[in-house]
Nucleic acid binder design. Structure first.
Lengths: 148, 148
DNA sequence: TATAATTCGGACATTTTTATCCTAATTAAT
DNA sequence: ATTAATTAGGATAAAAATGTCCGAATTATA
């Protein structure tokens, strides 16, 4: 093939999702979770991960405290869906863009794959994007699920 | 967001799929369909599209003839699924890669989204990837479906 | 046989995505 | 007060994807 592709999400988004899952699964009111620990846990480049955490913060999903013993926490300890993370990092392209890249593509003016993609989106939303983080954290502590 | 993302397929793959749909929907034993016409029809950069057509040829989906009145045709005029095109251009990443980017991720050793992604893949395969090109060409000639 | 239309492939350029480096600011704890 | 741990963000670099340019080879047809 020309290039190797075929990822639903960008690397940035993968790191974002894994970061959020890690933060959620290690939640503890008595401490914050720092960048270093997150990047180690999810096996991601630290400086790059820092940018992503900033973005998640700007989007209102995380809060952070600076300085020693500082780190990140989920804002208000609120339930968060995968969709919110994807929107924060990759934007709404997944939901809004034509799967074949047409500038305008709607049910009134569809590309050949429009209806098929509609079904696919519905299933993705139901099976993954609308799920909340704690759906994914259940089995992390007992090591049946891996983040790296 | 950091960057704008959220595409199921690469641009190259989008052009590949649209090229194949165009070629199929304009099939006529008496002529070949040339690059120029394809790129015009699907609104894609010509030189880039040329590379993609070469790749589709190398993968055995197209045949071409050089020279005046040359062009491309679907090999053996055989039914082709979207999956074959995706495999030719984007490779099998969509099918083989972990949705969260883990190096190893299997049902024995799953990432947190493994099961969810399995469902999603099954639906994508059923609703789009296993469909044959002529599913997408039906309404092109009467202009209810657009390629650009 | 000359010309125009075409594929083919190499080299290069641009843009986007991913990743790194560095310095400043803040805070806890000693 | 100093130090170490930490977030924050700007600048830059590297890699990947997308896109362009050009010249060579081939073939139909005038």
């Amino acid at each position: 093939m020309l290039y190797q592709k075929g990822n639903m999400f960008s690397k940035a988004c993968e790191y974002g999702i894994k970061s959020m899952i890690y933060i959620q699964s290690n939640h503890d009111d008595s401490r914050k979770i720092c960048l270093n620990e997150i990047a180690e846990a999810i096996n991601s480049p630290m400086a790059f991960t820092a940018k992503i955490l900033q973005q998640l913060k700007r989007s209102g999903l995380l809060v952070s405290t600076i300085g020693a013993k500082g780190g990140f926490q989920i804002k208000n300890n609120k339930p968060i869906t995968i969709k919110e993370i994807v929107l924060a990092i990759d934007g709404d392209g997944f939901f809004s863009k034509c799967v074949l890249g047409l500038k305008v593509c709607s049910s009134a003016n569809p590309c050949p794959a429009h209806e098929a993609y509609k079904l696919i989106k519905e299933n993705m939303i139901k099976d993954l994007l609308d799920l909340e983080l704690d759906e994914f954290t259940k089995n992390i502590k007992n090591k049946t699920i891996a983040l790296k």
